[in-house]
Design a protein around this nucleic acid. Sequence first.
DNA 1: ACCCAGGGTCGTC
DNA 2: GACGACCCTGGG
Length: 288
Amino acid sequence: MKEQKIQIKMSKSFNPKQIFECGQCFRWNKQVDGSYIGVVRHNVIKVQKEKDIVTITGIGDENLQELVTEYFDLRTDYETIKGKLSNVDSFLEESIRYGEGIRILKQDLWEMIISYIISANNNIPRIKGIIEKISKQYGDCICWNDQKYYTFPSILQLSKATVEELRTLGLGFRDQRVYDTTKLFVDKELTIEELTKEKDTNKIRETLMKLPGVGPKVADCILLFGLHKLEVFPIDVWVRRVMNELYFQEEEQNKVKKEKIEELAKKKYQDLSGIAQQYLFYWRRETA
DNA sequence: ACCCAGGGTCGTC
DNA sequence: GACGACCCTGGG
């Protein structure tokens, strides 16, 4: 495997810190020099931005240019999207100014399913730690610049894990859920291809929610981050908080029904709800 | 030391 | 439909 390198000129709609720390991904880590290194499928990639130039280097089994164009969704014009969403209201406009360099990554569906099952009632540092341990234990090792990196385990690789082993890795009560969901996939009761092929978002959501550990919130995250369904609006504690503060001040905060928040998001943000959600989530968390 | 919250889901009432 | 339990960790 030979190291590859590409450079892209990107002024506003690409900020590594915002992309990797807005909560959509768990496998990117900040380096001492300010760059970020992550594992994408069987590739290790380093991203650095100086002024308007994004420099990306990496090794792996894919063409870096193609991988980057796809993974970072570079064919989508975020300036247009931000323009549309900024017109919705001044709250969203402010959150967009704050996170103007966010992009929704096109991440691996299988990895998203397991990652977001692990995310349930959990905090981000711990989620990252667990996923790292799972990868180290069951994934493949890639060595780059004398450092070892581990790919996220395939269905087959993860199916080798027992519930007890998963518990040892710190999954807590999520061990059985990850085990059962993996078994379901390894037995081909459900396949990644089926999920990818289906176009109807609601049908996919229903299917996903049959998986152990997948409820409405996790299903929405899988749809948004694993299948790039930009119209879904995952509601977690932070999004609920920010939506309550912005739009439901009069009412008893935290008692606003989830359905009311969903309805409002759909009305205001429409087919871009998922992107709006990321700006709001990042804004509320970073300014907490 | 103690308590609380964390990108929720599940079983039970 | 509402309610509590759930494993574990970091932060107050």
